[in-house]
Structure formats: structure tokens, C-alpha cells
Design a protein around this nucleic acid. Sequence first.
DNA 1: TAAGATATGTTATATTATAACATTCTCAAA
DNA 2: TTTGAGAATGTTATAATATAACATATCTTA
Lengths: 167, 167
Amino acid sequence: MNKTMTATKGAFPGVRHDHGDCVAGALRAAEELCAQRGARLTKLRRRVFELVWSSHAPVGAYDLLRRLARERDGAAPPTVYRALDFLRGHGLIHRIESLNAFVGCCAPGLAHAGQFLICSACGTAAEIDDPRLDAAIEKRAKALGFAIQRKTIEVEGLCPPCQARRS
Amino acid sequence: MNKTMTATKGAFPGVRHDHGDCVAGALRAAEELCAQRGARLTKLRRRVFELVWSSHAPVGAYDLLRRLARERDGAAPPTVYRALDFLRGHGLIHRIESLNAFVGCCAPGLAHAGQFLICSACGTAAEIDDPRLDAAIEKRAKALGFAIQRKTIEVEGLCPPCQARRS
DNA sequence: TAAGATATGTTATATTATAACATTCTCAAA
DNA sequence: TTTGAGAATGTTATAATATAACATATCTTA
Ligand SMILES: [Zn+2]
Ligand SMILES: [Zn+2]
Ligand SMILES: [Zn+2]
Ligand SMILES: [Zn+2]
């Protein structure tokens, strides 16, 4: 475990964690994964990935676009959506359906259905992978003869720091 | 239990179920609920509710609008969105985040966080309310000190009839 | 190097949702 | 029964999110 705790699956990243480590780690993992698969993590895609990882709060496509447009002219919606599609296709980021926004995956490469706890105050999303939760879904689906293709689990609420801040 | 089985929470409505019964039951329940609460289920709201209930597949706001506009002129986006907001506020319908669409609630009045199995082939959504699933989420949230406000559980896949149809 | 495949640029448009203000309707108090 | 306040709806405009379609550039590999 790192001295300066970086974001881990199943926990809220500490307020003062070293986010540079998060980004660096995510980039390393993404590069490795793409190399293994012969997928091209181009400059543009890498940059979009970095922008998505700029915090642990999901980011909207047009936010990404605005930031991208500052550094690269001719950036238009397809520019960012295509990069997002690539990243999503390789499981490097997740889409948060209830927010129309995107967030970096904390465990790329591992098969998992993103499960998220999302703070409605600070926006931070914690990716979890609760086997009980998953098992409950699988079991119920099986009982009804339903063949699962994709799971969307998004729980909105208040993270511990934000609860403290309100009381 | 009805002779002609109507849609029940926790199951896929049969292909040949009497959907008129579903709609009639839903309308009765909505009327009762609104009466209890002193909420006004106006003509417009009731009509939007009926249109949402026109099938068990979630319907987009603009689909509703197109249909509404046939019968009522001057129907514009706010017309339908306001009705949807009202219905949602009273728990009479749910929004399916992963589809940007709306579906009737099978158990209005009862506290529950809509959990859905949604068929990617025919569109049918089955509302379930699995206590284990709910418990798993609550437990994990508690362990992380997360205060839940809203849960979004949407599982996409193939319903039994659609699986049969493909094989 | 040339050809094909992949990625990006560019323009236009589709889809979903809300803001802001005007008008009409409802219901109860005067 | 009036009338006035609040609620609901009408109306116009625009914001926010996403994709289609085609042109150009870049990469890969034979
Ligand atoms: Zn971090
Ligand atoms: Zn927070
Ligand atoms: Zn039905
Ligand atoms: Zn189906």
C-alpha cells in the first residue's frame, strides 16, 4: 500500500490523497492494457482520459470538450465523444447514466459491472464491486429467467466528509 | 388474483396479459393516491400517465409529446415534462436513467427504490423490489459511512420470451 | 512507396431538457 | 357572487447532450 493513499476501489478517496498518484497509476494501467490488446491510446485519447481523471467526480462530455478546446483547436463534440467511446469500449472509464457524465475506472481489465456511490454534494464517485450485491442481482435475474447483459448501479447520497460538513 | 393476470411487481408481464387491466388498475391507484394527498390529477396529467402506461416499455418524453400533440394542440416540451415531474414527484412513474425514458410504477405509494430488469430486445421493463439487493446496498453504504439518498438499479438484458425468440 | 485501415477534423443536425414569462383555471375567503 | 391568490397550463426561446455524414490526415504493413 502507498504511503500517500491513492484511490482504491471500494472506498472514497481521502480529501487529501495524492491525486497525482491516481492519475499516474490510471495512465500506467491504461497504457499497459492498450499495449496488451494492440489498441492505440493516441495523444488525443490519452488527453481525454487524463481530463476524465482530473478528479473523482464524473465529468460531462461538454466540460471535457471545453477544456480540450483550450489546448487544441478544432475540438468539436465528436472529438470528445469518440475518445470517450474508445475509452469506454476498453473499460477504462465508466458512464454514469444518472448524471450523463464519465469517470475513470478504478479496476480496468478486471471484469466488473461498475457500481457507484456518488456524493450529491461534492460529486465524488466511489466505485465499488460488492459481490453480495452482484449475487443478489444475478440470483433474482435467474429466478425470472432474465439474461443479464449490462448492470447499472448508481447510488446517490452524501459521502462521509460532506455529511460532517453539514452537521 | 385476477383471472387474466395483470402486471405484477417482480415479474415480466405475460405477452398476452390483459393490459387494459394494468392501465385501469394503475389509474385507480393513482386517483386514490392523489385524492389521499390532495394532489390534483388533472386531465392533462392523467392523460400523460395513460400514455406512459400504454405499454410496459419505458417511453421517451418526446414520444409522449408527439402522441399528446395529436390530441391536444399547443402541446410543447414543458407540457409533458411538467406532467412527468408531477407524476414522478408522487411516485406514480419512474425515470429510467439509462434510457432517458419513463415507465409506470407498479407499486405506487409503497416506499421503494425502483429496481428494473429491462429487455434490450422488446423494451419491456419489469420492476422488482429485491430486499437482498436493497440490503446489500444499504450494508455496503453503511460500511463506508455513505448516507443514501437515491438508488438507481437498472439491469439490461433479454427477457424470457425474447431469449426464446432468438434461439 | 502505395494501399488499406484507423483516427481525426468539420459541419450539420438530432435528441433531451429547462428557463422565463403570459394566460387560464380552481377554489376558497370575503 | 365576486374576487383574488395560488396552481396549472400555454408559449417562445434556448440550453445541454449526443450522433450522422463526409472530408482529411495518419498509421501500418506489405
Ligand atoms: Zn485521486
Ligand atoms: Zn461529498
Ligand atoms: Zn400490462
Ligand atoms: Zn423482451
